[in-house]
Design a protein around this nucleic acid. Structure first.
Length: 598
RNA sequence: GGGGCGGUAGCUCAAUUGGUUAGAGUUCCGGACUGUCUAUCCGGUGGUUGCGGGUUCGAGUCCCGUCCGCCUCGCCA
C-alpha cells in the first residue's frame, strides 16, 4: 500500500460511502480512548481526519494507531463517512475516513520541528537546518505554491505578449563594475576563471541584436555581497527585454504584468501606476523607492532657516549643497515622547547626520525643543508645513545627500512608530528619470547609477555626446532612460532603455573613466555586437523573491526560497560552503591562502 | 569590516543583587478515558546553560576570546 486513490485535501460529502486509500504524514493525534483514536492525515493538498474505532471497524486497529507518532508516514484504506459536526478548519471537514487497514511506510525520530505546532515556531536556525520539516508546514506549502503560480503567471503573460523564453549561461565571464562576483576556476585553462552572472544583462541585450525581439527568462543571479532581510547572495529574476520599443511601451507591458499578477494571485485590481521622477522622490521622500502609503513628506525650509541664529542650521547651510528639511508629524506631540525623539537623533547618526532638532506646535506657535531658535520664523514654518496644534516637527540639517537620506529613513521609522501605515494598501509607482551617473567620493570617479548600458534620455542625447569628461557637474545632471517599479516602498523591478549605438556606449565608458583598451578587453563582445546592427531595445528585471514576499505577506526573503542561505552565506542544511579534497584543488590549479584555523 | 540583539531539556521559554538540587509548557515514554478538533486528565524520562579561558568561597548570571543565528550600516552596476 504505497499509492492513493485520493489526496488528503480531496474528499467531500459526496464521497460518502466510498472506499478510499490515502497516504501522508501524521499531522496530529487525538487519543480519545484505547478504542478510539483520531489522526489528522496531512499531505500537500490538505488534511483529512482519520478515525480508528474498534466498534465501527470491528478490528484491533486502535492499539496500532496508538503507536503512531507525529510525522510518521502512513498509508490507510477505509470508508468515507459524513460527520455530525463538520470541522470548518479543513476543506475536508465535512467527512472523515473510518480506517480498516493501516500501514506505516516510514517512522520518524522525535522531530525538532513539529509542522502542526503553529504557536511555537522553532528558531530560524533550526528551521533552516531541518528545512524538510519546515517545508511541511502549511504556511510554507502555501508560499511554495504561490511562488510556482507567480512563475507560471509570468510565463503565461509574457508568452501571450510574444516573449520567447531563452536560457543564458551560468558560467560566464567577470566584467568590471557592479557587485562582487562569485568565481569558478577553470580546469581546462589554468589560471582562468568563470564568474557566475550577477544578471543576464549583456546576454539579453545580445539576444536583441540576435533578433529574438522579445525575451523572457526566470533566472538565478549571484552577487557576493552581504545579505539582508530582503536580499540573498543567490536570488531569482524575472528577466525581460524587448526590441523596437520606447520607455512608454515597456512600462505599459510591465505594468500590465504586475496588474495581472496581483489579480491572479490576490484578486486585487491595481489602479494605474503613478510616476515620479527620481529627483522628486528624493526631494519629497528622501529615498528612491518611496512608500506612499503615508504622507510625512520632506519639506525644504532652508530659506526660512537661513535667517535664524541656530548654529545647527547655519552651519549646515554653510556646507556645499547644505539644506534644512523638515517633516511635520500630525499628532506627534502626544505620542513622540522626549525619549523617542532622543532615539531619533541616535537613529539618524547611522546615516551620517548629527541629530534631529525637534519642536512642537501648540497654541498656534512653536513650543519646546528648539522653539526659541526658530521663534522668528515660527509662523512661516507652520504655514509651509501645514502644521497644526499637537503636531511635532522634525528637522534634518546637513548636506543635501545626508539630510535627505537621514530624514527619508526617519520618515519611515516615524510612520511605523505612529502606526500610520495602512497594510491593506497596494501603492505601486514608477520612479523614472534617474541620473546616468553617480559620483563616488572614495574612488573619486563616476559610476553608472543603474548600469553602464543604460541609455541617456532621448532629449539628453546631444548634450550627453558632447559632454567633457572633466565637467563633473554636467555629467551628474544627465538624466537616463532608467526606471524602477516600486511597491509599498520596496523596489520590485528595475530596468532601462539600453544603448544600441556603439558610439554612445563608447562615450559612457569614456565618462566612467574606462579606457578604450580596457573597454575593448572587457566589453569587446558587446561593442562588436552594437556594431553589427542592434535594434533599439529596453527591458526590466523583476525580483521574483520580492514579488512572492509581497504576495504572501512575509518580510523575510528566506521564507520564499525553498533552500535559502544564512546571513553568512551558509546553507545550514547541507553545510555549504565546505572543504574539498586537495586533488580537486590541484586539478583546478588553485591553492588556498586561508589560515588553517577551522 | 562596524553597531545591536540572541544562543539554557528534542522544541518554545523562565531563573531576583553572583547564592540551596537550573524550572515551566510542549515533544517523547507509561497510564486513564468511545466523538475528538494542536483533545483532556494523572505520572515519568530528559541539562557539557554554544565553545574556550578568567575573576570569585561560589558563575546560566560578571570579564576576555571565539563560533553560530538574526537585525542593521558600509556594500548590493
Amino acid at each position: 500500500m504505497r499509492t492513493r486513490s485520493h489526496t488528503a485535501g480531496q474528499l467531500r460529502e459526496e464521497n460518502t460511502g466510498e472506499t478510499v486509500q490515502l497516504c501522508g504524514w501524521v499531522h496530529a493525534r487525538r487519543e480519545q480512548s484505547s478504542d478510539l483514536v483520531f489522526i489528522d492525515l496531512r499531505d500537500r493538498y490538505g488534511i483529512t481526519q482519520l478515525v480508528f474505532d474498534s466498534e465501527d471497524s470491528g478490528s484491533a486497529l486502535p492499539p496500532k494507531a496508538k503507536e503512531l507518532h507525529l510525522e510518521d508516514v502512513i498509508a490507510i484504506r477505509g470508508q468515507v463517512r459524513a460527520r455530525d459536526k463538520a470541522n470548518t478548519r479543513f476543506e475536508t471537514g465535512a467527512v472523515e475516513v473510518v480506517v480498516t487497514e493501516l500501514q506505516v511506510l516510514s517512522r520518524t525520530a522525535n522531530p525538532p520541528l513539529i509542522p502542526s505546532d503553529e504557536k511555537n515556531l522553532p528558531s530560524e536556525e533550526i528551521r533552516l537546518k531541518h528545512r524538510y520539516l519546515d517545508l511541511r508546514r502549511p504556511k510554507m506549502q502555501h508560499i511554495l505554491r504561490t511562488r510556482h503560480r507567480v512563475s507560471k503567471c509570468a510565463r503565461d503573460y509574457f508568452d501571450d505578449h510574444g516573449f520567447l523564453e531563452i536560457e543564458t549561461p551560468n558560467l560566464t565571464r567577470s566584467t568590471p563594475e557592479g557587485a562582487r562576483d562569485f568565481l569558478v576556476p577553470s580546469r581546462n585553462q589554468a589560471g582562468m576563471w568563470y564568474a557566475l552572472p550577477q544578471s543576464p544583462q549583456l546576454f539579453k541585450q545580445i539576444l536583441m541584436v540576435g533578433g529574438a525581439d522579445r525575451y523572457l527568462q526566470i533566472c538565478r543571479c549571484f552577487r557576493d555581497e552581504d545579505p539582508r532581510a530582503d536580499r540573498q547572495v543567490e536570488f531569482t529574476q524575472i528577466d525581460c527585454e524587448m526590441s523596437f520599443v520606447d520607455r512608454k511601451e515597456v512600462l505599459a507591458i510591465m505594468e500590465g504584468f504586475a496588474r495581472t499578477l496581483w489579480n491572479e494571485i490576490l484578486g486585487v485590481d491595481l489602479p494605474e501606476f503613478d510616476q515620479i521622477t527620481y529627483q522628486d522622490a528624493m526631494d519629497r521622500f528622501g529615498i528612491d523607492r518611496p512608500d506612499t502609503r503615508f504622507a510625512l513628506e520632506l519639506v525644504d525650509v532652508s530659506d526660512l532657516c537661513a535667517t535664524t541664529d541656530f548654529k545647527v542650521f547655519t552651519e549646515a547651510l554653510g556646507k556645499p549643497r547644505g539644506v534644512v528639511k523638515a517633516i511635520c508629524v500630525p499628532g506627534g506631540a502626544a505620542k513622540l515622547t522626549r525619549k523617542i525623539t532622543d532615539g531619533y537623533s541616535k537613529f539618524v547618526q547611522n546615516f551620517g547626520a548629527g541629530g534631529v532638532p525637534v519642536t512642537k506646535v501648540a497654541n498656534g506657535t512653536l513650543e519646546a525643543g528648539i522653539a526659541k531658535f526658530v521663534e522668528p520664523i515660527a509662523a512661516q514654518l507652520i504655514e509651509r508645513l501645514g502644521a497644526q496644534d499637537g503636531d511635532t516637527i522634525l528637522f534634518g540639517a546637513d548636506t543635501y545627500s545626508v539630510a535627505t537620506k537621514a530624514l527619508g529613513e526617519l520618515r519611515q521609522k516615524v510612520a511605523r512608530d505612529m502606526d500610520l501605515i495602512d497594510e491593506s494598501k497596494w501603492n505601486f509607482l514608477w520612479v523614472v528619470d534617474f541620473p546616468m551617473f553617480e559620483w563616488d567620493e572614495e574612488t573619486s570617479r563616476f559610476y553608472a547609477m543603474h548600469h553602464p548600458f543604460t541609455a541617456p534620455a532621448d532629449h539628453e542625447l546631444e548634450r550627453f555626446m558632447g559632454m567633457d569628461p572633466s565637467d563633473t557637474e554636467g555629467i551628474e545632471s544627465i538624466v537616463s532612460d532608467g526606471y524602477d517599479m516600486v511597491c509599498n516602498g520596496s523596489e520590485i523591478g528595475g530596468g532601462s532603455i539600453r544603448i544600441h549605438q556603439q558610439d554612445v556606449q563608447k562615450k559612457v565608458f569614456q565618462l566612467l573613466g574606462i579606457s578604450e583598451e580596457e573597454a575593448k578587453l572587457k566589453f569587446s563582445f558587446l561593442l562588436d555586437a552594437l556594431g553589427f546592427g542592434a535594434p533599439p531595445h529596453g527591458g526590466i528585471a523583476f525580483g521574483l523573491d520580492r514579488l512572492v514576499m509581497h504576495l504572501t505577506g512575509t518580510d523575510n526573503i528566506r521564507d520564499v526560497i525553498a533552500f535559502p542561505k544564512s546571513l553568512s552565506g551558509a546553507d545550514l542544511m547541507c553545510e555549504a560552503p565546505n572543504v574539498v579534497d586537495d586533488e580537486q584543488l590541484t586539478e583546478l590549479h588553485v591553492k588556498s591562502t586561508a589560515k588553517p584555523s577551522r
